[in-house]
């Protein structure tokens, strides 16, 4: 066992812990793939927001948001190590595999949380720092410690944590929260259930094994498929709202509508998937498309804003 190998017997009978964790193991605690989405959407919020921010301060803001998101990932891995050890998708994470001890992950997560919030407050503004602190708290405490193991609506409410970054990016530039930034929040917030339940459908047995009440193993496949479609429609609608509210062009609206149709199309494919289908190809396709969808929508918003700032009209 790896854990045993990490313990050396000290002459005299005591035991001392000697870590073999590498910097890469600590980096893995930050959930780099989730962090890339956070960085991207926060950057979009920063770009789309009206006003200007010094590019260096903007880069520092993104760094702080990324580190804060990573810190909440480390806190999540600290708390969830018991169930991570059982699920195939997460069994190789640093804590269940014995490369990092839980208390190391906890200290790492808390330290990074404190530093990222403090530096964002000192370098940018305290509203965005407050939002970042709330995001970390929401993900680590409200979602991980409370909702995840108690309700099948866990990721609907918990999804708010992943939706805050564009709002924080917006607050970094404007120093405030507005209807536009709430719309940016809602795009990711409404997208999360369809994205995550598509994954939950083909990883259902994993969640069942550890007793996490994900919608497919609590309410059944059909209910999940219907709710995926409902959230896909809501996401497609909200992604067009920037054009309706006038902070994105008609061209962006068309682009977002076409992507939304694609998202709904893939969700209908999941709805038509036979009950008990083991391969779940439509669910895997929806999961893959959902990632492309979110990146494309926020890219569209950024390109639209840059084109408008050059005086061109789409």
């Amino acid at each position: 066992m790896a854990v045993i190998e990490h313990h050396e017997t000290v002459p005299g009978g005591g035991e001392v812990y000697l870590s073999e964790a590498s910097p890469r193991d600590f980096f893995e605690l930050l959930k780099p793939r989730v962090m890339s989405l956070v960085v991207f959407t926060a950057f979009a919020g920063l770009i789309v927001a009206p006003g200007e921010i010094n590019p260096l301060i903007g880069a520092i803001a993104i760094l702080c948001i990324a580190v804060g998101a990573g810190a909440s990932g480390a806190l999540n891995m600290w708390y969830d190590a018991d169930i991570d050890a059982v699920m195939t998708r997460t069994a190789k994470r640093p804590i269940p595999s014995g490369r990092i001890r839980p208390e190391e992950a906890l200290a790492f997560g808390l330290t990074l949380s404190a530093f990222s919030v403090a530096i964002l407050g000192l370098a940018v503004n305290w509203l965005s720092a407050g939002l970042l602190a709330f995001t970390i708290f929401f993900y680590a405490v409200i979602y991980t410690m409370w909702l995840k193991r108690s309700t099948p609506q866990n990721i609907v409410i918990g999804g708010a944590a992943g939706a805050f970054p564009p709002m924080i990016g917006w607050a970094c530039v404007t120093g405030g929260v507005s209807v536009e930034s709430v719309v940016l929040f809602l795009i990711t917030f409404l997208w999360t259930p369809a994205h995550f339940w598509a994954l939950a459908l083909f990883k259902m047995r994993d969640y069942d094994a550890v007793g996490v009440p994900m919608l497919p193993n609590v309410a059944g496949e059909w209910t999940t498929k219907v709710q995926i479609l409902v959230y896909a429609v809501l996401t497609a609608v909200i992604a067009v709202v920037p054009t309706v509210l006038g902070f994105a062009s008609f061209g962006y609206g068309l682009f977002a509508a076409a992507l939304g149709l694609g998202f709904v199309w893939y969700s209908v494919g999941v709805l038509r998937m036979p009950e008990g289908d083991r391969a779940m190809v439509p669910a895997k396709k929806l999961f893959a498309f959902s990632i492309v969808y979110l990146f494309a929508v926020f890219s569209g918003l950024m390109v639209d804003h840059l084109v408008a700032s050059l005086g061109w009209v789409l």
Binding site: L18, S19, E20, A21, S22, P23, F26
Partner: peptide, 9 residues
């Protein structure tokens, strides 16, 4: 390996 990982950290 412990020396190597400590150096890396």
């Amino acid at each position: 390996s412990q020396k190597k990982s400590r150096r890396g950290r």
